[in-house]
Simulated assay, not measured.
Amino acid sequence: MTEKLQIEARRVGPTTAVLVVLGPLDAATVPTLLAEGAGLVDAGHCNLVLDLTSVASCDAAAAGVFLDLHQLARNLSGQVVLTGIRGLVQRQLERTAVIGTLRTTLNTRDALIMLGTAGTG
């Protein structure tokens, strides 16, 4: 049985949103993340912070979704920043070259500072 993915979306500025992701990211769950992130980008939130602190595992499908969201954001002059990466998630994202392609920070606060939206959320 696949664990359920939970996503908490928080808008922290006119062009920035934070997605707090809880649960595994795999082929069964990543369509939910893609739909949520793409919806935010379509609504003008072209800077996305994905907080992966509560994600214990991910597979290549998740890496693909991170890169898809990155491209959607870049089309609107935005970007995706990943935070809270550790353990198995970090190793998978290193193997798939997501780390090195996308910006990463230790935590959401640092990501918002990087995006120039700290203090707005």
Rank of each mutant, 00 (worst) to 15 (best):
G119T: 05
S54C: 02
A35E: 15
L106P: 03
A27K: 08
L72M: 10
L112T: 01
D110T: 10
A118M: 01
R95Y: 10
G13K: 08
D110P: 00
L52P: 03
G78H: 10
E8M: 08
L40D: 04
C46P: 00
L76M: 14
E94A: 14
A38H: 11
L52H: 03
L112W: 02
Q6P: 00
G39T: 07
L69I: 07
G116W: 03
G39I: 05
S77C: 06
G121D: 05
R86T: 13
A28D: 15
L50Q: 05
T108N: 04
T29V: 08
P14S: 12
R74A: 15
T2N: 12
V55W: 01
E3D: 14
L102R: 08
R103L: 12
T29I: 03
G116S: 04
T16D: 12
G84F: 12
V12G: 07
Q6Y: 04
T2H: 11
S54Y: 08
R109F: 07
I85E: 06
G39R: 06
P31V: 11
T101C: 11
D42L: 11
R103T: 14
D59Q: 03
D68R: 13
S54E: 15
G87C: 12
I99L: 15
G78Y: 07
C46A: 13
R95F: 13
V80I: 13
L115G: 05
L33A: 08
L5M: 09
L102S: 11
G39N: 11
A28H: 13
L40T: 03
T105Y: 01
V81L: 11
H45D: 04
L50Y: 04
G78K: 11
A56P: 13
T15Q: 14
T83K: 08
N75Y: 01
L82K: 09
T2I: 12
V30F: 04
G116M: 04
A73G: 11
G87Y: 11
V49P: 10
G121E: 02
L40H: 13
N47I: 01
K4F: 01
R11E: 13
D42A: 15
L34I: 00
T108C: 11
T108M: 02
D26Y: 04
I85M: 13
Q90N: 14
V65S: 09
R74H: 08
Q79V: 07
